[in-house]
Write a protein that binds this DNA or RNA. Structure first.
Lengths: 143, 143
DNA sequence: GAAGATATAACGAAGTTCGGACTATTCAAC
DNA sequence: GTTGAATAGTCCGAACTTCGTTATATCTTC
């Protein structure tokens, strides 16, 4: 199988670049004091992994545990996150979202969802499946 | 034309999420003291728009001019960027990359290029064109 | 040539990241 | 069971980034 052509690489690059920039600009429009990028990532992770520990999150996101500690501090202070010592291992802390945190995470997910919706809307129904199949192949290499 | 299905939205979302995370982790592996995200963006913009002014860059990237000033400071200090007062309007400054800056920008571009190459390599030659056509349609809505 | 607009830089406050030191537990081995 | 190493998490402080306010120099326009 031959290599991708130069034109293809350039086209993909400019598309990505444009997309990323637009996405960033759109993101900046939100009115509340925005959570730090890291904090949002933490929130979404904990939403999916209730009861996990800070170390899990840090490893998943690829940041030092001290950095993650700052993030959980901020989130706890804003009332988005609860930290509870657990019985099984009293060194450990179990992270869970508060109601407000869950709401924020949900809103975040909704925002993404709307964006995906918009993106897919520009394709025909047939194309949508094909596009997703291809991007899945690219990301997971499971073709 | 009907709406995208829930499954499609979820599939696209997880693919993106995985991709973004992997990309971030890979990026963190680089050994030099990394430039700030903004600084990299500035470098790439100036690479494409030699002689442009700070205000242009700030507007393009959607950051306050003062923030951009910090960025150009850092880049100039590291010897990546030259700032020269221009004759035509002596308030204005023309930004150009130094040789080192151009090299850095080039390396950055190379990194992206390799990533795109890897991505497209996972598709068959036929799929590549179709994928790019679709993503172009999505991003530019010019279908 | 005075008033106002424009391009940029200097300064400083607020916030983020992360290395190093520290505490509290648990585990392992004797 | 006590000692020593490993583990989970936090606190502190230095370095850095962002961005609002303010200052400076230079056009522009009437």
């Amino acid at each position: 199988m031959s290599d991708p052509t130069e034109d293809q690489l350039v086209a993909l690059g400019t598309a990505f670049e444009t997309f990323a920039r637009r996405y960033k600009l759109a993101d900046a429009l939100r009115s509340e004091r925005p959570l730090a990028e890291l904090d949002k990532a933490v929130l979404l992770y904990v939403a999916e992994h209730a009861g996990c520990g800070p170390t899990d999150v840090a490893r998943f996101l690829g940041v030092p545990t001290t950095t993650l500690s700052s993030a959980t501090d901020r989130l706890a202070k804003r009332g988005f996150l609860k930290r509870e010592r657990i019985e099984a291992d009293r060194r450990a802390v179990a992270l869970t979202l508060s109601e407000a945190g869950a709401a924020y995470a949900q809103a975040q997910v909704e925002t993404y969802r709307r964006m995906y919706m918009l993106m897919l809307s520009r394709l025909s129904p047939d194309e949508r499946d094909r596009f997703i199949a291809m991007i899945t192949k690219i990301v997971y290499n499971d073709g």
